[in-house]
Design a protein around this nucleic acid. Structure first.
Length: 467
RNA sequence: GGUCCCAUCGUCUAGUGGCCUAGGACACUGGCCUCUCACGCCGGAGACAGGGGUUCGACUCCCCUUGGGACUACCA
C-alpha cells in the first residue's frame, strides 16, 4: 500500500506584513511537511485587489525566508488563476449546485437586520435560489448549500467538529465584479494543488463545513483539516498592534534572531515534554501536528527575549558579528572590522538580549565620548590621580596586550598604592566606558586596544588632577 | 443573540485514573559567585475555575454552571 506524500501549504493574503500569529501557523504547517518528508507549498491569496499589494507580498516572502521556512512549490498567485475559479463556478451553476442571485447589498443588509431583530440568524433567505436567473449586472453567484443534515470532520487538532447544515449560508462564490470569493478559491486551489492536509488558523473552523460542501459539489477528495489555536495578546484577545509589535519584520529589526523567534513560536500550543530549547533538526524530528494543544496561547514577549538572549549567548560569534553592522549603521556608528566585532560580541553577549542591545550596551566600543559630568565628579577623585598615573605608565609597556598582562599591570598598581581593586575598578570602568555598568575591565581593555585605553585613562587622570 | 471551540502557577506548558503532598520554563524573589552589571549555581513564593456525577480512587472520564475566544461580509 502506498501512502500519499503529505502536502501542506501556507496561504497568506498580502494585505499587510507577516503577522507573528500567522507565521506560527505557517511554522506548524512547514514543520509537519518536513517531519513527514512531504512538500510545503506557498500560495499568495491576493484575490482582494483593493487591499493586496506587491510590497506586502515581498515582505511576507522575505520574512518567511528569514525564518528559514522554505517552500517546495510556488509561490502561486491566486490573482493569476481567476479564470480557473470562474470556470469551476460556472460549472457548478450548470449542474444546479449554484445559482445567480440579484439581491442588492442593501436588500441583504435589510434582510439581516430584520432577522436579527426577530432574533433569527442573520442569513440569506435564498429568495433567488429557484428563480432560475442568468448572468446580469450586479448579480452574484451563490452556492446552493444542502439544507438538511449536518457536516462534520475530524480535525487533527480539535477532534471531531460537527455543524448543522442549517447554519451554513448560501454563501457567495462569485462577486458582482466577477471576482471569486475566498471560500471558492481556497477549495479549488487546495483541491487542484492536491493538498493532503490543510493546516490553518482557528478562525477558519466555521468556514470548514462550507468548504467541505464545496469539495463534495466539486467531486474532490477531502484533505485532512487541522485548525491551530490563536495567539492572543496579554488581555486574551486576538494578538494585534495594540499589544506591541506583531510583524515578523519588526522583530528582525529589533535585533531578534530567527532561531529565537521560531523556538518561541513553536512552543505556543505545542511542547515536547519539558524541553524548551530546540534546534531546527530537533523540531523537525519531534514535531507532530497531532501534539498541538487545543487552547489559545498568550504571546509573552519576555520569554521571547529570554530565548533570544539564549541564542545570543550561545551562538557562533562570527555569525553574530556579521549581523551587528546593520545595527551600527542604524545608530550612526562606524563599522569596525569583523575581528574586532567578534571580540565585542564575546565581551557583551552575556548581558545583551538583542543585537540592538549589543550596539547600545557596547556603544563605547564604537565611539569616543566623554563620561557624563556627574560620573566624572563621582568617580574621578583627586586621591586616585597617583594610581591612575602609574596605571597609565605600566599599561604603556604591556606586551602582548592581553588579559593576563593587563591584569598583571593593574595588580602592580594595587601593590604600589595599597589600593583594593574594588576601589580602582569603577573609576576605570567609567573612564573606559562612560558608564557604571559594563563587561569585565580586562575584557574591555583587551578588546579596545592600547591606544584607546591609554587615551581614555589619561583623560580621566587629567580630570583627577583638576586640569 | 446564534453556531463552534477552549479551560493546570501571572504567562508558556508536563500530566492521558493510582507514579501528583501536581513537574519544567519565563517573569518575580532570597542567597552564593563577583571589578559593576550580567551569566552561572542553590533556594522560595505561585495553579488543577465552580458544582454535580462515574469509580475502590480523579488534574485526568461524563454533565451542568461560570469564564474566555473564534465565526456570524459581494475580506481573506
Amino acid at each position: 500500500m502506498t501512502v500519499r506524500k503529505v502536502r501542506t501549504r501556507f496561504a497568506p493574503s498580502p494585505t499587510g506584513y507577516l503577522h507573528i500569529g500567522g507565521v506560527r501557523t505557517a511554522l506548524f504547517s512547514w514543520l509537519y511537511a518536513r517531519h513527514t518528508g512531504g512538500d510545503f507549498i506557498l500560495r499568495v491569496e491576493d484575490t482582494d485587489a483593493q487591499r493586496s499589494t506587491e510590497e506586502s507580498t515581498r515582505q511576507i516572502l522575505d520574512a518567511m525566508l528569514w525564518l528559514g521556512l522554505d517552500w517546495d512549490e510556488g509561490p502561486f498567485y491566486q490573482s493569476k488563476r481567476l479564470d480557473l475559479y470562474r470556470e469551476y463556478i460556472h460549472k457548478l451553476v450548470d449542474q444546479g449546485k449554484a445559482y445567480w442571485c440579484e439581491c442588492s447589498p442593501e436588500a441583504l443588509e435589510a434582510m439581516r437586520s430584520q432577522a436579527l431583530e426577530k432574533g433569527d440568524k442573520p442569513r440569506y433567505n435564498r429568495t433567488c435560489r429557484h428563480k432560475g436567473l442568468g448572468p446580469g449586472p450586479g448579480r452574484v453567484i451563490r452556492f446552493a448549500t444542502p439544507g438538511n443534515g449536518a457536516t462534520s470532520f475530524d480535525d487533527q487538532i480539535k477532534g471531531r467538529v460537527t455543524v448543522s447544515n442549517e447554519e451554513l449560508d448560501d454563501f457567495i462564490l462569485l462577486r458582482s465584479d466577477d471576482m471569486p470569493t475566498y471560500n471558492v478559491s481556497v477549495v479549488i486551489d487546495d483541491a487542484l494543488m492536491e493538498m493532503t492536509h490543510v493546516i490553518r488558523g482557528d478562525d477558519h473552523v466555521m468556514n470548514t463545513p462550507k468548504q467541505i460542501q464545496l469539495y463534495k459539489a466539486l467531486g474532490s477528495p477531502l484533505p485532512v483539516f487541522g485548525h491551530v489555536p490563536m495567539v492572543l495578546g496579554k488581555d486574551r484577545t486576538r494578538l494585534s498592534k495594540r499589544h506591541g509589535a506583531t510583524s515578523v519584520t519588526a522583530y528582525k529589526d529589533m535585533g531578534f534572531l530567527p532561531e529565537a523567534v521560531v523556538n518561541y513560536l513553536v512552543r505556543l500550543s505545542w511542547s515536547h515534554g519539558d524541553q524548551e530549547i530546540f534546534s531546527r533538526e530537533e523540531l523537525i524530528e519531534f514535531f507532530d501536528i497531532g501534539d498541538v494543544g487545543k487552547s489559545a496561547a498568550v504571546f509573552n514577549p519576555e520569554k521571547l527575549l529570554w530565548l533570544n538572549h539564549h541564542y545570543i549567548k550561545t551562538g557562533d560569534t562570527a555569525r553574530l558579528a556579521a549581523l551587528v553592522p546593520e545595527f551600527l549603521e542604524l545608530k550612526g556608528y562606524p563599522v569596525p572590522d569583523r575581528e574586532y566585532l567578534q571580540k565585542v560580541v564575546t565581551d557583551v553577549r552575556e548581558r545583551t538580549k538583542t543585537l540592538e542591545e549589543i550596539v547600545d550596551f557596547g556603544d563605547f566600543y564604537f565611539t569616543e565620548k566623554e563620561p557624563p559630568a556627574e560620573l566624572r565628579r563621582d568617580f574621578f577623585k583627586p586621591d586616585l590621580a597617583l594610581a591612575f598615573g602609574t596605571l597609565v605608565e605600566k599599561l604603556r609597556t604591556v606586551d602582548p596586550w592581553e588579559h593576563a598582562g593587563l591584569e598583571e599591570a593593574v595588580r602592580g598598581v594595587l601593590e604600589e598604592t595599597g589600593l583594593k581593586f574594588k576601589i580602582l575598578a569603577q573609576p576605570m570602568r567609567v573612564a573606559l566606558t562612560g558608564k557604571t555598568v559594563s563587561p569585565g575591565i580586562f575584557e574591555i581593555m583587551a578588546t579596545l586596544g592600547r591606544d584607546r585605553v591609554l587615551d581614555r585613562l589619561s583623560r580621566a587622570h587629567a580630570c583627577m588632577r583638576g586640569s
